[in-house]
C-alpha cells in the first residue's frame, strides 16, 4: 500500500461524506448524518495515515522531509486541517448540519490536488532554502488558519442562504439550519481562531525568510497577499467588535476574506510571480 493509494481513498471518502452531509441537509434524515460523520472520521484516519506514510516514503527515497513542501502536499494538509477543525466543531456544538458546508471544501482540495494539471504528486527533494523547521511551522500555522477561514466561509454561505430565503414555514430545506444568531456567533469564533493562526503563519514565514535570506519582509506578492488577507480580517473584527456589525455583512466578509485566502494560495502562484514559486510545482 502506498500513500498515493490512500490519498485516492481519501478523496473518494470525502466525496461520499460530502454527498451524505448534503443529503442529510436536504432530506433531514438523522441516520445519514451519522453515517456521514462516521465516514468522515474514517477517511480522516486514512488521510492521517497517508500523510505519515508519505513522510516515511520520503525518507526511504533518501530525501526525507515533512510532507508540507509543495502545492500537492499543502493541499492535502489544507484538506486535513479543514476536516479536523470541522470535526472539533461538530463535537463541540453537537451539530452535523454544517458538515454540508465544510466537508465539500476538504473534498475539493483533495480532488484539486489529485487531478489539476500542473500539480505533481511526486515526492521531490527540498532545495536548500526550504530545509527549515520554520518552514514547517509556517505551512502548518498558515493552513490551520486557512482551514478556519474556509469553515467561516462555509458558515457565511449558510447564513446568507438562510437569511435571504423567504421561507418562514419552518418546514423547508433551511429550517433545519441552526438559528441565525448561532451561525453568526460561530462565524465570529472561526474568524478569530483563523486570525490568530494567520498572524502566527505570517510571523513564522517572516522568521523563516530572515533565516534563509536575511530579510524578514520583502513585499513579494505572496507575502503581500497574506498581509492583504490579514488586513481584511482585522477590519472585519473591528467592524464587528467596535461598530457592532453583525449578520449578513459579517457573513459577506467571511466569504470575501476567504476569496482573498484562495487568491493568496493559488492566484499568486498562477497569476503572479515571486519567491514562493515552490508552490507552483
Amino acid at each position: 500500500m502506498t500513500s498515493s493509494t490512500l490519498f485516492g481513498i481519501t478523496t473518494i471518502g470525502y466525496l461520499l461524506a460530502s454527498a451524505l452531509y448534503i443529503g442529510t441537509l436536504i432530506f433531514k434524515t438523522k441516520k445519514s448524518g451519522l453515517v456521514a460523520s462516521i465516514i468522515t472520521v474514517l477517511t480522516f484516519l486514512v488521510q492521517t495515515a497517508a500523510i505519515g506514510l508519505r513522510w516515511y516514503e520520503s525518507y526511504q527515497m533518501g530525501m526525507g522531509h515533512a510532507p508540507l513542501s509543495n502545492m500537492y502536499e499543502s493541499l492535502v494538509f489544507f484538506s486535513w486541517s479543514i476536516v479536523i477543525f470541522y470535526l472539533i466543531l461538530e463535537v463541540k456544538f453537537n451539530n452535523r448540519i454544517f458538515g454540508a458546508f465544510a466537508i465539500p471544501f476538504a473534498f475539493v482540495s483533495m480532488a484539486y490536488a489529485s487531478f489539476a494539471k500542473g500539480i505533481s504528486d511526486q515526492i521531490s527533494p527540498l532545495i536548500p532554502a526550504l530545509q527549515s523547521n520554520w518552514l514547517i511551522a509556517h505551512v502548518m500555522t498558515c493552513f490551520i488558519g486557512y482551514a478556519a477561514f474556509a469553515v467561516a466561509c462555509g458558515l457565511g454561505c449558510m447564513y446568507l442562504m438562510k437569511s435571504t430565503s423567504s421561507d418562514d414555514s419552518g418546514t423547508g430545506l433551511l429550517a433545519s439550519l441552526p438559528a441565525l444568531r448561532v451561525i453568526d456567533d460561530l462565524i465570529h469564533k472561526c474568524m478569530i481562531f483563523g486570525f490568530l493562526w494567520l498572524s502566527a503563519g505570517i510571523i513564522t514565514g517572516a522568521i523563516w525568510a530572515n533565516s534563509a535570506w536575511g530579510t524578514y519582509w520583502s513585499w513579494d506578492p505572496k507575502e503581500t497577499w497574506s498581509l492583504i488577507t490579514w488586513f481584511i480580517y482585522a477590519a472585519t473584527l473591528h467592524a464587528r467588535f467596535t461598530r457592532g456589525w453583525q449578520g449578513k455583512r459579517i457573513a459577506w466578509l467571511a466569504v470575501i476574506g476567504f476569496v482573498s485566502v484562495i487568491f493568496t494560495y493559488f492566484g499568486v502562484n498562477f497569476l503572479l510571480s515571486g519567491l514562493h514559486s515552490y508552490g507552483s510545482s
Partner: peptide
C-alpha cells in the same frame, strides 16, 4: 485598513 489592503494589491 481598507486602503492598505486595496493599495497593496497594486504592487503585486
Amino acid at each position: 485598513l481598507f486602503l492598505l489592503a486595496i493599495s497593496s494589491v497594486i504592487g503585486t
